[in-house]
Nucleic acid binder design. Structure first.
Lengths: 305, 305
DNA sequence: GAAATAGTGTCTGTGAGACATTATTTA
DNA sequence: TAAATAATGTCTCACAGACACTATTTC
């Protein structure tokens, strides 16, 4: 049936006909999800410093089969034909973390033609944040060795600005290092931002890849940026804290995310309206106890004040 | 061949075999793009006020066939199996606007199972901004009537906050109105934000739909929010201005996007470093002429100051 | 000079950033 | 009392917001 004739049908007839003759005319990609699941963990290391240190970790899974066999990949999976992406993500989050209702937000959809050698896979990536206290210990089952939390470190190796003829070219070379007990994976990512007039275009390429599967180093970096970008003006970081927490602990979570130390007074002023004093205290050492707070459910981010 | 046996092959053999037997095991969705293309246009209306007024417009296309026949939809199309989403978007932007290198940024990927009655379509939406001066007049061809710029108005009809048991439920009822010469399309969108602890989830439903196809009212609203959210701390608005512009004009672009008036002094201070004086002036009426500025290519957004 | 808009000077309040001080605990 | 960390007081500086004023044009 010609396209023209199709349009003379009623809507119901059209759709019936479309499903028969048009629906599978073109080859389609698969849709997958990739989730950068983060937690802030307390370092086990007992070094000289008394102050407990925390670190940002991401969950990775060792690839048991081709492609990228043996490399570490983000959690994720294929979207079923009868579910939407959000449902797939919540299903997979529950599977991987064992926790219900984990915070997740959509990041970006990756669609490079060659991002998977098997076939065309378009991936919708998500940023997920879990409170470490809620996490069950990683399953000690047969594949315990294949699911791990990696400490995340990123470092700008090189930063170059070039202004040519009204076009600003900014090149950043960023090293991403992921460390688990005995395993270290890493990547070097080159990020080029071309600003022509006010039109900003960013091209990202992975120039070195050691043990990180697919384009996942890029996705992890992107999720880090999103996390850092939102930490200061949303409640996003509270998803990484327990029900009750001390302000010094909360501050450490912020510091671990931002990768720098924060001023105490300023930090407390900043979160003042986001927390409620529980009236409880907690003693953690040979010094003044901390007050316990909880998240203030009534807090609203007044976008434009 | 069993999954187990597949994994004993070399990577090349595996992929070859995968493409033969595994690749099309499951039904796949189609990938489409939807683009909210905005421009800021100068009102033709000559009312009593001398000050020229601008308005925010979005490009819509009348659907010639089922489904949503006769309704207005965002520009877009299917992603080819040999191109990535960005390429598809740039191709379609050129087709629709006639302009090369239009600013476009990825917004969100929509995947509701029933968002298209024909088949499963996952849509990657984009926000695009074009300078009106660069736009050729809409093609006067046979389908000139099918492509139009609509003035965008949105209004919060109702806003309710409810705090139940540590869970904050914020419900906003928003009216979106799109006006072209003789055509008006509109929708009422209900946006519910559920904040449980710090975990924010937003559910959006279209409760009334008049002449806007698919879930496109939702996408337009989402793109408006993104535009407003970025206007104050990026150079995004400059994509809506010409090569050279006056500060009063630039301020109007900001005002039209934000939907409110801005303080002149404060605005000028805000954009001070983003613009360069061209030394030229432009006379537009019986009053002091405006200086012409251009975008300052050397401006960089120092993310954390 | 009147009308209209462009552009500048300056006061005020808020909030970020930094430094200093006090408070509370245990050894 | 020393050591360690929690919590608060307060100074400074940058900037957002507002108001008032000056500048330039045409009629």
């Amino acid at each position: 049936m010609e396209e023209k004739d199709l349009q003379n049908l009623s809507e119901t007839e059209f759709i019936e006909q479309y499903k028969k003759t048009e629906k599978d005319k073109y080859e389609k990609p698969s849709i997958a999800t990739d989730m950068a699941i983060f937690t802030v963990a307390t370092k086990k290391v007992t070094d000289n410093r008394k102050k407990a240190d925390k670190e940002l970790q991401v969950l990775l899974i060792r690839r048991g089969g081709h492609p990228y066999k043996g490399d570490w990949a983000l959690a994720g999976g294929f979207m079923g034909i009868d579910e939407d992406v959000e449902t797939a993500v919540q299903r997979e989050l529950k599977e991987e973390t064992g926790v219900d209702g984990v915070y997740a937000e959509q990041l970006y959809t990756w669609s490079a033609v060659d991002r998977d050698p098997r076939m065309r896979i378009v991936s919708v990536s998500y940023l997920a944040l879990v409170d470490q206290e809620k996490l069950p210990p990683l399953q000690a089952g047969d594949d315990a060795d294949d699911v791990r939390w990696f400490t995340v470190k990123d470092r700008v190796m090189e930063s170059r600005d070039e202004l040519v003829d009204g076009t600003m070219i900014k090149t950043d070379k960023i090293e991403l290092t992921l460390i688990s007990d005995e395993v270290t994976a890493s990547a070097v990512i080159e990020k080029t931002t071309i600003t022509e007039g006010a039109n900003v275009k960013t091209v990202v390429t992975i120039s070195e890849r050691n043990g990180i599967a697919f384009d996942h180093a890029e996705i992890i970096l992107y999720s880090l940026e999103r996390l850092r970008g939102k930490v200061n003006y949303t409640n996003i970081a509270f998803n990484l804290a327990g029900e009750e927490f001390t302000l010094p602990d909360l501050q450490q979570i912020y510091e671990v995310i931002l990768g720098r130390e924060l001023n105490k007074v300023q930090f407390r002023r900043h979160v003042e309206n986001m927390v409620v004093d529980t009236g409880k205290e907690i003693k953690t050492g040979a010094y003044r106890p901390s007050k316990l707070y909880r998240y203030n459910a009534a807090w609203v981010y007044d976008q434009w004040k």
